[in-house]
Simulated scan of single mutants.
Amino acid sequence: MSRPQGYIEGEAPASQQHSGSNGGSKVRSERVALLVVSALLAAAVIVICRLSLDNMHTKQSFQTLRDEHEAVKRNLTERRCEVKSYNTVQQTSPQPPVVKENDPRPKCEHGWEQYGRQCYYFSIDLLTWSKSRDECRQKGGDLVQIDSREEQTFLELKLREKNNFEWDVFWIGLTDSEKEGTWLWVDGSPLNESLTFWFLGEPDNWTGNDPDGADCVRMGKKAGAPDMKRWFDESCKYTYRSICEKPAETRHFTLHCV
């Protein structure tokens, strides 16, 4: 059998060689692409794992810092309480405890002075007896009603502190304006005749300056007045200072050591 012209033994035809070359190149390209994609996926997985690990470490660090912060706060609070308690014990004058709950002691508001369970306000306004009573009522009380020798003593001592001159005197809540000679306190109760502090010769219902007489009572300085005898009946139209009275308030509160 005759060979085609140009045939070389052992060599494939040119058309077959070209077809095989194209097939091999295509396979190699697909493999390279697959390797690149695999490498990118692997890199992405590594990055995600690293970010997750870093995030977990960050959360753990924050939690550790938070726990340490709370421990420091508790420690400082305990130290402050210990120091305040120590200082309270060391003080020589009586001091209130660091912690009190529901303190039932009655208290007077600012500007009032306390005696027992009553509060007293010493007005500086010069008013008639009725205007003085109005002022006391606006403040939640009334003109003072004196029910004991101890209360009279307390008021006398306070007036000595507050009197600026001899006739700096104060209205109290006693009057006989309804019936002459029948002395009543502002709450309507009658005067206890065994517990009075009239100055010598009082009450005299003097009408020299007021024809209506002297139907209201004031107290204050009088030279030579013995044994707290400081009550005088005066015209209710005169203007004097006054003493207001009201019960002390019971306040419930809680103090914490901070």
Rank of each mutant, 00 (worst) to 15 (best):
Q152W: 09
G181Y: 08
E150W: 08
V186A: 09
F154C: 07
P104N: 06
L184N: 06
T182D: 15
Q145R: 13
E150D: 15
R105I: 07
V144P: 11
G111K: 02
S189K: 14
K139W: 06
N205E: 04
G201D: 12
K139M: 15
S194C: 01
F199S: 14
D176V: 03
N192P: 04
E161P: 00
N164E: 13
G116S: 10
T175M: 01
N164F: 06
L155V: 01
D210I: 07
T182K: 11
Y115T: 00
E180K: 14
P203V: 08
N209A: 09
R105S: 14
S123P: 07
E113Q: 08
W171D: 01
W129F: 07
F122N: 03
F170L: 00
V186L: 05
E150Q: 15
S123N: 10
L191P: 03
G116C: 04
E151V: 11
S130V: 06
L143E: 09
D168H: 15
L191G: 06
E113L: 10
K162Q: 14
W185Q: 07
F165I: 00
W183C: 06
W112R: 02
V169C: 10
P106G: 07
E135P: 00
G201V: 07
K179C: 01
E166P: 01
W198R: 10
R149I: 13
G116V: 04
C136G: 08
T196N: 13
I172N: 04
S148D: 13
S189V: 03
D142S: 13
R149E: 15
S123F: 07
D187W: 06
